[in-house]
Design a protein around this nucleic acid. Structure first.
Lengths: 189, 189
DNA sequence: ATAAATAACGAACAAAGTGTTTGATAACAT
DNA sequence: ATGTTATCAAACACTTTGTTCGTTATTTAT
C-alpha cells in the first residue's frame, strides 16, 4: 500500500481516537477529524465514505485482532470445561485488553465505549457459538442455548464495562475468578 | 398544565417514538420530529432545548414509572431471598414491560434500544443498591458487592435485550426461571 | 532518470440542519 | 371580557455534509 495512504490512514485513526477520548462519538464532526488529522477534506472522503464507515472499520480492525488471538488460545484451552486450569478464554481476553494494543483501552473507556462493547459482544457471541457450543451442551441445562450464549457474552461485556469504568482496579486473573464464580451454573456441575 | 402544552408535548413524544421505530436516534433530525409532530419550529424549542434533552425527558418519564412500580412490589416481595416465591422483582419488571405502557416495547425494540437499556441498567443498579443490598450481603461472597450489583443489573438488561430482539418468544415467568437459574451463585446457597 | 499513475490538496458548491429572533394569531384561565 | 400565554410562520446567521474541479506532490514502474 502506498506510503501516503498509510500515513493518512494512521493520521485519521489517531485523530479519531484522540477526539473520542474527549467527546461523545455523536458530537464529533468529520470537520474536527479532518482538522485534528491535519489532512484535506477531499482526502478524508477518499478513505472513508462517512464517519460511521470510519467507526465500522475501526471496530473491525480492533476486534479482529482480539478475536483471532482468542481463537489461537482456544485450541490449547477450553472455555471453562476444566475449572482447575488457570487460563480461560476470558482471562486471556482480559489480559489482551490490558496489554492495550492499538490503544484499545482508551476506546473502551471513552464516553462512547458502549458502541465498542456492543460490537465486542456480537464478536463474543459468535466466538462462543462456533467454538464452545459443545462444552456448554455438555451439561444438560434447563435453559435454551441461545439464552446461555447471550448470558455469557452479555455479562462478560458488562463486567468489562464495570472494570474499565472503575479504572481497571482489578487484575485480569482476579476478575476471571469473579466471573467464574457467578457463571458457575453455566460452566460447572 | 395548559391543554395546548399537553397536546404539543404528546405530539412530540408520539412523533419521536414513531421515528425511533423507523431509524436510528442519531440519524433523526429535529426537523423531522417537527414535521412528524406537525408543530412549529419555535414550539419544539419552547418545550425542549435539544434532541438530547427530549431523549433524556423521555427516559425519565418511562423508567420513572417502572422503577416506582418495582419499588411498590419490593415491599411485598424480596429480591430472590425466597426461591419458592414465584413473584420476584425481576418477574414483575418483565411483566410490566410486557404490558407495554407508553409503548415502551417499541422503544426497547428499536434500533437505538441500547440507549434505553443503558438508562434502564443504571436505574436497576440504583434499585438493587438501595433496596436489596441486604439480601445480597446475607450470603458471604468472595466477590465485591459492586461486582455483584453490576452483574445482576447487567445480565438482566442483556437478557431483556435478547428477549426483545427475539420478538418476546418467552413468557416473563419462564424468563424469570432462566434468570434464577444462571443467577444461582448470587442469590442462593 | 523519466514518465505514467495516483494520492493529497485548497477552494468552492449546494443542500440540509441548528438554534434564535420577531411579530402576529389563537387558545386559555379567571 | 381581559390579560396571559402557547403556537405559529418566516427569516436569520451559522455549521456541517458530501461532492466537484483543477493543481501539486509523491510514488511506482519502466
Amino acid at each position: 500500500m502506498d506510503r501516503r495512504q498509510q500515513k493518512t490512514r494512521a493520521a485519521i485513526f489517531s485523530a479519531f481516537g484522540k477526539l473520542l477520548s474527549k467527546k461523545n462519538y455523536n458530537k464529533i464532526t468529520v470537520q474536527e477529524i479532518i482538522d485534528e488529522a491535519n489532512i484535506g477534506r477531499t482526502t478524508f472522503y477518499a478513505h472513508f465514505e462517512t464517519k460511521d464507515d470510519l467507526l465500522k472499520t475501526l471496530c473491525e480492525e480492533l476486534f479482529g485482532h482480539i478475536i483471532d488471538s482468542a481463537l489461537d488460545c482456544t485450541h490449547t484451552h477450553g472455555l471453562y470445561s476444566n475449572a482447575t486450569v488457570p487460563e480461560s478464554i476470558f482471562c486471556h481476553l482480559l489480559q489482551h485488553l490490558q496489554e492495550n494494543d492499538n490503544n484499545i483501552l482508551e476506546l473502551l473507556s471513552c464516553e462512547s465505549n458502549d458502541i465498542f462493547l456492543r460490537y465486542f459482544k456480537s464478536c463474543l457471541s459468535e466466538l462462543i457459538r462456533t467454538q464452545f457450543i459443545d462444552s456448554i451442551m455438555q451439561k444438560r441445562h434447563d435453559v435454551p442455548v441461545d439464552f446461555l450464549i447471550n448470558h455469557i457474552s452479555g455479562s462478560f461485556v458488562e463486567m468489562v464495562l464495570w472494570w474499565i469504568n472503575g479504572s481497571l482496579k482489578y487484575k485480569p486473573e482476579q476478575l476471571d475468578q469473579y466471573f467464574r464464580y457467578v457463571l458457575k451454573p453455566v460452566t460447572q456441575e
